[in-house]
Design a protein around this nucleic acid. Structure first.
Lengths: 231, 231
DNA sequence: TGCCAACTTTGCTCTGAGACAAACTTCCGG
DNA sequence: CCGGAAGTTTGTCTCAGAGCAAAGTTGGCA
């Protein structure tokens, strides 16, 4: 295992108040691991043994129903913590973390959590801020699911992806990891058929350009209108 | 204001590890207030100035869409904290808290939060446990909304209410606060018409007995079947 | 006691989007 | 370069449940 560089963590919210020796300590306690695309880092219901920081790649947080349907609760982008069950005093993971693309993550055993919180200024505060934000996102999604039509929900989901993990290309903004119609329907409580029809329609209207596992939003502002966001 | 009694807080999760003098301190810093049924204790978007503990009554936590539709995110029962924005480092309330019945709550200014966490053993831990549970509930509701039919969602909502705040009566289990068809539809992303039809059907089948603002579940086990909970 | 507002019920219509079915395309591995 | 798996598109059918409309019921208040 090559020695990790302190600059990896510098500037990331949970560690932004720390100096280099402190970051060095934290890094030395971590394990780093690479994952292929489409592998589970941990699974719902399993003992929460470690918490994670995504360095590169993208993670989907997934819940599966007893009937086998799955819905995507959340996407994690590089620089974010995930699997932070210990922060909420859970002893099992509430959902499964699956890589959307090849990924690299650091992790620590949960028993270090309380030490980190006590010892490192700002660590707990920033983590709970993250939890608060995710809670807010989840509330927003509940409201969306309860009140909006499928087209609005898919538009909103696409916009969220683009904001969180889009990168500029000549023709618009591209989602930075592979994503299928099925994935999008798992995020919105719909079906791949309906999502496919929507994307086709939007393609005709010049709002998006999509190919297999790959979406570029060419007219974000028009998507905003479709999402029903209030003006 | 009459002097409050320490026994009010004894045994409640956030304070269960504290002794009487400590509880006395906390109580002396609190303000207690009575609210009529149907009044807002705080509103979405307003500055989070205080956090609350419900002593008696019931609270609905509500989000309103820009279009004016509202959905009920959560019910709070006596003994639970609410408005705990400071725990998640938010400076505004993410939702509105409305009394479902006449209620009594204690509250403290948010600036005391960090002090409580630092000084009182178990306070922060228990609060974050609560946050974790609510997060889990919200995830469950997202999955429900995304995958289940209306009948299942309403059945599940009713069961949740009955578990959280039901009281035994001769004929079954009664929801301990006033609740309308509209409320139930606001919890499930449906309409009062559809909920009314469902309750009528269930009444015919002997599963519930309901009158205006008042529901008794007479056959909880049959509701469980309807809710699609896995057996 | 009677009125009114709030709550509930029920009928009818209409449509969004899920289910089913089948063909097509793309990419990867051998 | 071929074959097959994975992903996508499109058509048709169907129905759960929302929307609209109107009437009934209840309980609190004057």
């Amino acid at each position: 295992m090559p020695k990790l560089d302190e600059s990896l963590l510098t500037g990331l919210p949970p560690f932004s108040l720390l100096d280099r020796p402190q970051i060095r300590e934290i890094l030395d306690l971590s394990v780093s691991q690479r994952y292929d695309a489409g592998t589970a880092i941990f699974r719902e219901g399993h003992d929460a043994e470690r918490f994670y920081l995504l360095l590169d790649g993208f993670i989907r947080v997934i819940k599966t129903t007893p009937e086998g349907e799955q819905i995507i609760a959340l996407h994690i982008a590089p620089g974010q913590l995930f699997g932070i069950a210990p922060a909420l005093r859970r002893d099992t993971y509430p959902a499964t973390a699956m890589t959307a693309s090849e990924s690299l993550a650091l992790s620590w055993p949960v028993r270090l959590w309380d030490g980190f919180s006590a010892k490192y200024e700002g660590f707990a505060t920033e983590c709970y801020r993250t939890v608060g934000e995710r809670l807010g996102e989840m509330q927003t999604r509940i409201v969306e699911l309860a009140t909006q039509a499928v087209e609005q929900r898919v538009a909103a989901a696409l916009l969220r992806l683009v904001n969180q993990s889009g990168r500029r290309v000549e023709t618009g903004i591209e989602i930075a990891f592979p994503i299928t119609r099925q994935n999008l329907s798992d995020m919105t409580g719909s079906t791949l058929h309906t999502v496919s029809r929507l994307l086709s329609a939007w393609e005709r209207d010049g709002i998006v350009h999509s190919t297999r596992k790959h979406i570029v939003v060419t007219a974000p502002h028009r998507l905003v209108l479709l999402s029903g966001a209030q003006g």
